[in-house]
Design a protein around this nucleic acid. Sequence first.
RNA 1: CGCGGGGUGGAGCAGUCCGGUAGCUCGCAAGGCUCAUAACCUUGAGGUCGGUGGUUCAAAUCCACCCCCCGCAA
Length: 312
Amino acid sequence: MSRPWTVVYMGTPRCAADTIERLMEGPDPVVGVVTRPDRPAGRGQKTIPSPVRLVAEAHKIPVITPEKIRSDEFLGHLSAWAPDLIVVVAFGRILPRSVLDLAPQGCMNVHYSLLPRYRGAAPMTWALVNGDETSGVTTMRLVEQMDAGPILLQEEVPIAPEETSASLEAKLSPIGAQLLLQTIRGLKEGSIKDIPQRKEEATYAAMLKKEDGEIDWTQPARVIERLVRAFSPWPSAYTHWRKQLLKVYRASVMNEKSQVPPGEVVRADDQGLWVNTGDGVLNLQEVQLENRKRLPSSEFVRGARIEKGARF
RNA sequence: CGCGGGGUGGAGCAGUCCGGUAGCUCGCAAGGCUCAUAACCUUGAGGUCGGUGGUUCAAAUCCACCCCCCGCAA
């Protein structure tokens, strides 16, 4: 096999952290890491380092957290590291031409969808919202246009019936890491060739907005159930009850119809919280009222004194 | 100093404003009923009301500080 490639890694969240750990088990040394600056997070604006930063520091790899991607300072750092290859996983920033062209082997990206479908920030979530039966992971070369570069390798992964964004991410993350190693190996061997994306088949997975999680009770039960799964655990599907936010973490479609208006409680007992929708009854199985703990709905019902006829 | 809500038998909650017998829906135990049951009836056990200090004849309740949990925001 040919000589190792030095790699600079860019990424931020949990799945990117898992991936760099796997990458470091491979033959190619990670010589530098770029991640988002520590941000105030959680209550009391405590500053939290990104998951990728924690991993990098634990392995004593140099880390930079540039505020500006388009700066000479940033380019200077990258050049000093002189990477053969730049790997980008869920970094959350668009890279300029100058960065894309910096490494001899270019920039490679791991994306959690079967491109060209679901280009963009939240591919797994939107695949679940749409009720897709499969998702997947793609490695590709980065180009200036977001997620539009040539595909290197791709692996399809089935979506389980009760899949949530959290479970799908946990599933795709190691597969992506594996695919990344495989891609690098293949590129060295010359066994992989670029496959241009069919841009006419491209779809876009927009960044999630909180309001996207608001439940429209006139929708079919199965559509709402998918929304609940897709937005679990973040940003979560929600509705309102007595002027308070009620998050819904788990729901299941009941084989039952009701004549009451959509959003009305059909039944509330130790079997859960049954609510009518546009086309049938949905059982909210796990909920969380504002300021309270996340609970099985049977327990929520006990304390909240919510009854048949209540409206969301 | 980002904003806000909460901690009450094993679970989920009410009671706190206006201090005075520890309450609700469940769970648990025993007994009853029943062909039978996760159903129903009766009875019972189980609590230093997050902690410490203060005010008071008297504190779950009022005051001060501390610990823990959560929603918003990011």
